[in-house]
């Protein structure tokens, strides 16, 4: 159980595919102009990622090492087309806003990366959890960016009524995407660095500090 939770939260926090590992930036930027599109893209990518992880993990033992990449791509492309058909047939409204981006999932390198790095080496159940966790990480990241860009660029949140007098249109355009993504990633890196530094300091304390009353103060003031 602990192992499962670890795999799941690994995808959201420690190895967040977009914000920490910097993969899958293309759909992250392209589909985050409005929060609703971001949610749709997040769900679609999570679905494809989970399904492809499960299937690849199932067939991992019969795939010869040399042709693993083509096989992964075929599996991923199949699930992307499945999503495309299902959305068109059962969620026509969503397909209108997402239609252009669905084929993009094929080239979303998060999915290929997880297939290569995790699903081809672990059992089905772990791969399923990893797919959901990584998908959730992508979902959280893209929705945060979607909300920021939609609010600054069109002055709305989830398509509500306009809240800004003069929205900055550039935030919806590609340059705004890079700007917003840069800021979000900076914030995440800043927090990450703080945490990493703290744990590093704690594990590298000189033995003389043990039992010292001023220990916590030293760490706070970054003396050690």
């Amino acid at each position: 159980m602990k192992q499962l939770l670890k795999i799941f939260f690994n995808g959201i926090v420690k190895e967040n595919p977009v914000l920490i590992m910097m993969i899958g930036l293309c759909p992250f930027l392209a589909c985050s102009t409005t929060a609703n599109d971001a949610i749709g893209m997040g769900i679609a990518a999570t679905f494809v990622l989970t399904c492809s992880n499960v299937i690849i993990s199932l067939i991992r033992k019969i795939i010869p090492h040399n042709i693993r990449i083509p096989v992964f791509i075929v599996v991923i492309a199949t699930f992307t087309t499945v999503v495309d058909y299902l959305i068109k047939a059962y969620f026509p409204a969503l397909s209108e806003s997402l239609g252009v981006f669905i084929p993009l999932i094929v080239v979303n390198c998060i999915i290929l990366a997880r297939a290569e790095a995790f699903a081809s080496k672990n059992n089905v159940f772990y791969s399923l959890i990893d797919g959901i966790g990584m998908g959730a990480g992508f979902f959280v990241a893209i929705v945060i960016l979607g909300i920021i860009r939609e609010f600054l660029g069109s002055g709305t949140i989830f398509g509500s009524k306009e809240m800004l007098q003069v929205p900055a249109v550039i935030m919806i355009l590609p340059p705004g995407g890079f700007l917003a993504a840069g800021v979000v990633i900076t914030v995440v890196k800043y927090i990450e660095n703080k945490i990493v530094r703290r744990t590093k300091v704690l594990s590298n304390l000189p033995s003389a500090c043990e039992g010292c009353k001023l220990k916590s103060q030293c760490i706070q003031e970054k003396i050690v």
Binding site: I59, P64, I67, V71, V74, V75, A77, T78, V82, L86
Partner: peptide
């Protein structure tokens, strides 16, 4: 290698045409 790749493609094509 050829067999596995062909098999994967056939399964994928069949399921897609069904859908």
């Amino acid at each position: 290698m050829v067999l596995v790749l062909v098999l994967v493609c056939i399964v994928s094509a069949l399921s897609l045409s069904f859908l």
